[in-house]
Design a protein around this nucleic acid. Structure first.
Lengths: 366, 366
DNA sequence: TTGTAGGCGTTATCAG
DNA sequence: CTGATAACGCCTACAA
């Protein structure tokens, strides 16, 4: 029935004829599925099937549609399609700091993971603010996403409630902690502290320091420190956490070394674990000022495996996380859940372990 | 009218009662605007106005709705809203390599720029492939985005055609080149080559080399080299482009220095411009092997102002691009275009200039 | 393999 | 300031 025509049923006759007064709202310039169908002389559902289940369309019709679609440049309207099917194929990802290499790699992993399947990634940045995270979650929920990917586990109470009420999978990535009601992909950050502490313990060190930068938002660094503290305690040794109060991370590492240089030789730690490679690099670059050499004067190590770490002298021992793999696995998990339709049931935990990369900086000469 | 009830107008009586045969498709569990309206005893359009134009709703109704919305946890379905209003509030961003710091900063700028306004960012990664870019553009177009942000200007012919036919703003970012039919925000990469070349020319250098890494995808580095070549020609000097054939960028810079060290003193250039800071850093870290010192033996400079560049010895002279600002300005441009509704008309070009950061590595001692 | 009818949840339009 | 009605463009359910 072409637009503008009114079906003349008995019912329509009951009303005055001015019933067709509304002006149509159709945006001009874009073709609809009906246009394509009309040109091809088929019904619109056939065109729909051409896109969503081509095997159900006969080869001849399929070929005709292919041509018409190329000629007209028709692209199905996702808004309409997703509304009708109640399946958005949109995945919301909420990042703490899009600009950091780690989160950027995470995003790339997700992006690559979703590249097939026609899943699209909705991205939000929060700058470590839980309130901005809540805002982002709220916005995303309006899009009825196929899944939400988060990068922290300490949400605001309102956000947590929203997530618990959600009807789609929630995946918390990067860190992994116990007893969360959502899927998790990543690794426990405390393990990093443990790994590095054990590395030095195994070499016979007893005085090991952990150098942290005061940055309340980065609770992951705090978790790494906790792993260190616990491991030291288990070994019957005293934990020694150095807190640098410095905006700049390189400078924080440098200041840690400045303080170290002031200490009497006998009291100095044999090893320093930096909360991040950035701090470790800052330390390596500052050392010559004090005539210090690593690992001769003190063994050091970091976390993150920054590209520069392997190239410094001394090369910096580090723990390498795998953010790209984590992003990729999160995407794969979501695709698998979607395929199985067991979306929300039994949250799973997937560990993507870090790797200890031992380099010159941590080889204690005992 | 609760679902399932049929209004018994005269018209409905004319048909047999089996008129309500279809099963409703409503997803259970989510509230709709009608539910909220029914509870409040208003019509659904009033609820719509509560969200989109609250000032048009009386204070008393507004307060009642606020409560009901909190209680029910109602969130408007964006899919339906955007379909009806034909305004998606979705912006598609196509990045070449999400994992690089530059693109990550670009994304953060956009994200921050759109944080208000309820605009959402759809992100795609292409790994420098123009075919993947075309795919991403095609997917995004189905979402009828409010704008598309791209990070290259050499699209496939099909992609270019899609973009020209698009009814929303297209913004090409990062690089800026002449005679494009779209908005552009960024800077001409050739200018970077010019800037650095002039920096050395001004210090009296006549033998200046440009060190490039063979990486066909990174056509921006090529553009920087071209700026150098042109500036040298204008100065009546001979261009001298060194091509490193190396996957790793640090190593490429190191190899450039290896080659330099082999050259007879008299023939050596007085300055080397690296296509990127990464190469420059590789050079600085390799120099001690050859007993070379910058700038005493040769002045060097890079591009990108990597965080480490300022902290090396010697500190590396660099040209600092402003990816975050570029992303932010692209977002602001899109918001402005939306406000003015002059979406596609007269493409604009907005230069976000780079900054030359002169450090020790390039101070020629003439 | 193809088609018909109507719903998905919202907003534009027009009327009070 | 509030409401009735009909789009928006596609897809599910059912029918042939």
């Amino acid at each position: 029935m072409p637009p503008g025509t009114v079906a003349s049923t008995d019912a329509s006759r009951l009303k005055p004829v001015e019933s067709r007064v509304r002006t149509p709202r159709r945006k001009q310039g874009t073709h609809t599925i009906h246009d394509v169908a009309a040109i091809a002389g088929v019904s619109s559902i056939t065109v729909s099937r051409y896109f969503n289940a081509p095997e159900k369309v006969s080869a001849s019709v399929r070929e005709r549609l292919r041509q018409i679609i190329v000629e007209t440049g028709y692209v199905p309207n996702q808004m309409a399609g997703r509304l009708a099917s109640a399946e958005s194929r949109l995945v919301g990802a909420v990042m703490q700091n899009t600009a950091s290499l780690t989160f950027a790699a995470l995003v790339k992993g997700m992006s690559d993971g979703f590249d097939d399947e026609g899943m699209q990634l909705l991205l939000a940045n929060t700058d470590y603010s839980d309130l901005r995270e809540e805002r982002a979650i709220r916005s995303f929920i309006g899009w009825h996403p196929s899944a939400l990917i988060l990068t922290r586990d300490d949400h605001t109470p309102d956000a947590e409630a929203l997530l618990l009420a959600a009807r789609h999978p929630i995946v918390e990535t990067w860190g992994v902690v116990k007893d969360r009601p959502f899927h998790q992909v990543g690794f426990p950050h405390s393990e990093v502290g443990t790994l590095l502490t054990e590395h030095f313990l195994a070499q016979g060190a007893t005085r090991i320091r952990f150098a942290l930068r005061q940055a309340p938002q980065d609770f992951r660094a705090q978790q790494r420190a906790e792993g260190y503290v616990q491991t030291m305690r288990m070994a019957g040794l005293q934990a020694d956490v150095d807190n640098a109060q410095c905006e700049d991370e390189y400078e924080a590492g440098a200041q840690t070394i400045d303080r170290f240089a002031q200490e009497p030789l006998a009291q100095r730690p044999q090893a320093i674990i930096f909360a991040s490679d950035t701090m470790g690099v800052g330390a390596v670059l500052r050392a010559p000022v004090h005539g210090l050499r690593f690992p001769a004067d003190v063994g050091i190590a970091g976390f993150g495996d920054a590209p520069i770490s392997a190239r410094l002298s001394p090369a910096l021992t580090s723990v390498r996380p795998k953010p790209y793999e984590i992003g990729l696995k999160a995407a794969q998990l979501i695709k698998a859940l979607k395929a199985e339709k067991r979306s929300v049931a039994e949250p799973s935990t997937q560990i993507v372990p870090c790797e200890l990369i031992v380099r010159e900086s941590s080889r204690l000469q005992t």
